[in-house]
């Protein structure tokens, strides 16, 4: 047997993650894969993510998006992730449906801002208008209404096992599939 038969090492899979209008619960759940993250690091590396603190996304294989789209910054981040990722995954209830933050969708965003900022006696009497602050959208939108989404991992949050299974399927080129045991919450 010749030595050249050895499989050449595959380039590492590059993963980016972000939390938009979410609670970071999906990221926490992702960290719950515990020591399996060491196995993951043998075949993958992180791009933009709270784990690396890289601020902007560069070309990558998989982008995991937590949370819905509630303000202009969310939309910019999401677009950047989409432009750079081969596969974009919406993870968790907020990314898929808007989730809890979307409970404000029944109300007028102007009324909400007034209620929160303007009517505070003696503390503050105007809605913040600093150009550094991202403006709120009229509603919180699910990710798939703003960019194309390739896969959805349901759950609030999805369990570490569900995320682990899904990521492994994606990395190994299998159609991701979660069994009932990874999908039910009662």
């Amino acid at each position: 047997m010749s030595e050249s038969a050895e499989t050449p090492a595959l380039p590492k899979v590059r993963i980016a993650t972000t939390s938009l209008a979410g609670c970071f619960g999906c990221h926490m759940s992702f960290l719950d894969i515990d020591e399996r993250i060491l196995d993951l690091m043998k075949i993958a590396e992180f791009d933009r993510s709270p784990i690396t603190d890289i601020k902007h996304c560069s070309p990558c294989d998989i982008a995991l998006i937590e949370g819905g789209v509630c303000n202009a910054e969310n939309a910019h981040v999401l677009r950047e992730m989409r432009a750079n990722a081969k596969i974009l995954v919406a993870i968790g209830a907020c990314a898929i449906n808007g989730g809890l933050p979307a409970m404000r969708n029944r109300l007028d965003v102007g009324d909400i801002l007034n209620e929160v900022y303007r009517d505070l006696d003696g503390v503050q009497s105007h809605v913040p208008n600093d150009p550094e602050l991202p403006l709120l959208f009229d509603k919180v939108y699910p990710v798939n209404e703003v960019v194309r989404v390739d896969y959805f991992i349901p759950g609030c949050p999805p369990s570490a096992d569900a995320i682990w299974k899904y990521l492994n399927d994606l990395i190994l080129g299998r159609m991701p599939r979660l069994d009932h045991s990874l999908l039910h919450y009662d």
Partner: peptide, 28 residues
């Protein structure tokens, strides 16, 4: 490849109004 289901800039109208902003960052 894809077009959003919503007009994102129009979705900022109300917040622009309330904050009294019209700078570049207030548009998308």
């Amino acid at each position: 490849d894809f077009d959003p289901a919503v007009d994102l800039d129009a979705a900022l109208t109300r917040a622009r109004e309330i904050a009294g902003r019209d700078d570049a960052g207030a548009h998308i």
